[in-house]
Design a protein around this nucleic acid. Structure first.
Length: 336
RNA sequence: GGUCGUGUGGCGAAGUAGUUAACGCGGCGGUCUGCAAAACCGCUAUGCGUGGGUGCAAAUCCCACCGCGACCU
């Protein structure tokens, strides 16, 4: 029987302390970290996304120093923190749109590379949708956004979009969220490019083993560990962390993204949470800093809730309260 | 003490006689196989300060009381 490479996944809602735990774990088990965070992939978005600090700031491209280094993605370059390599952080320009399809492709390359060097890959992040693409081996054909088409479709009422999709691909229309404009537009966009919405090849269920909280892909064994904190504690963490980010210059960061890096407000706002609300403060649509704080605080609480809703559906995830338990679970997992 | 105003869910707020009391926020729950920090959905007042009265019918009109606000003496 072929021995499968083992992969640890550390997940949890925002501010549950994933990053630090992952570093600790990597040190203990000779691991390297792959970030599964849909916003930390972007350069220049550091404070607002809560990127862990890099070991050698000088080696990190001067994010705002010159627009050349800023413009293009530097693929698969690792980001060193706590002397542990982190992948898929700062690997894309905020001007581009990195997505689940790219993540899946990049992450697998990196996993193969880490495994080959006999190190332990640790995926760490809160973007459940991206994690799922790797764990369940879901490959998305890459279809680039067609902005003209999107603009046109966006002016149509949702019902009309749904009818369009029904004609283009009845199958996808059958399982899509009827009222979800964003998804309808994307589905139609895919149809226009590929002629239909290909059904995704997800290996049938049953590859997971709920009892042990593991699942297996073609070549990998996964152990998904979720950090569980009571809601009150989570909210407390979020609040404290946000106050700190304000002090660290979270608002300045957004200012720079717009004025120095010339990212449109609209683009910045599309990143959500703080990036959604700060432009409104900078444009004086929100009067006070405290009001802004409350808006972001609320948004992050809601976000944490959505993350938990997503994660809790996956019964393979083993929930633990702290690092000690993660270490214990990891030990048991890699032994056999 | 007097006058005027006001009292609707955790909060803000509409409704000023007649379908099951708008809506926003918050709270709770959920969806997601294609931008996921996005997008989307559901639930959340047997009751309108209290007690009486008028009416077929009252949150809506009348009276009293209580609370709050402003002004006056």
């Amino acid at each position: 029987m072929k021995v499968k490479s083992k992969i640890i996944i550390i997940l949890g809602p925002t501010s549950s302390g994933k990053s630090d735990i992952a570093i600790k774990l990597a040190k203990k088990f000779n691991g390297e970290i792959i970030s599964a965070d849909s916003r930390q992939v972007y350069r220049g978005m550091d404070i607002g996304t809560g990127k862990i600090e890099a070991d050698h700031p000088a080696e990190i491209p001067q994010r705002f120093a010159n627009s050349k280094s800023y413009a293009g993605p530097s693929k698969n370059k690792s980001y060193l923190s706590g002397k542990i390599p982190h992948y898929l952080i700062d690997n894309a320009s905020p001007r581009t749109n990195y997505n689940a399809a790219k993540f899946k492709k990049d992450a697998e390359k990196i996993i193969a590379n880490i495994s080959k060097r006999r190190k332990l890959p640790i995926i760490c992040g809160g973007t459940g949708f991206w994690i799922k693409s790797v764990v369940d081996d879901i490959s998305y054909p890459e279809v680039k956004p067609d902005w003209k088409l999107r603009k046109k479709l966006n002016s149509y009422p949702t019902e009309k979009l749904f009818k369009m999709l029904q004609k283009l691909d009845p199958e996808r229309a059958g399982n899509i969220d009827v009222k979800n404009k964003v998804r309808l537009i994307r589905a139609i966009e895919i149809c226009k490019t590929l002629g239909f919405v290909p059904s995704l090849s997800s290996s049938p269920s049953g590859r997971g083993c709920p009892v042990f909280g593991t699942s297996e892909g073609e070549n990998y064994d996964f152990l998904q560990l979720g950090i569980f904190l009571p809601k009150e504690k989570l909210h407390e963490n979020i609040e404290k962390r946000l106050r700190k980010r304000f002090d660290q210059g979270m608002i300045e960061e957004v200012k720079n993204l717009h004025y120095k890096n010339k990212l449109s407000w609209k683009k910045i706002e599309s990143f959500g949470l703080g990036y959604f609300w700060i432009p409104k403060y900078l444009r004086k649509e929100i009067a006070t800093k405290e009001e802004l704080f409350q808006k972001i605080f609320q948004a992050e609480k809601d976000y944490a809730k959505r993350q938990m809703t997503w994660f809790q559906k996956d019964k393979r995830i083993k929930w633990v309260p702290d690092y000690k338990n993660i270490e214990k679970e990891t030990l048991g997992f890699i032994k056999n």
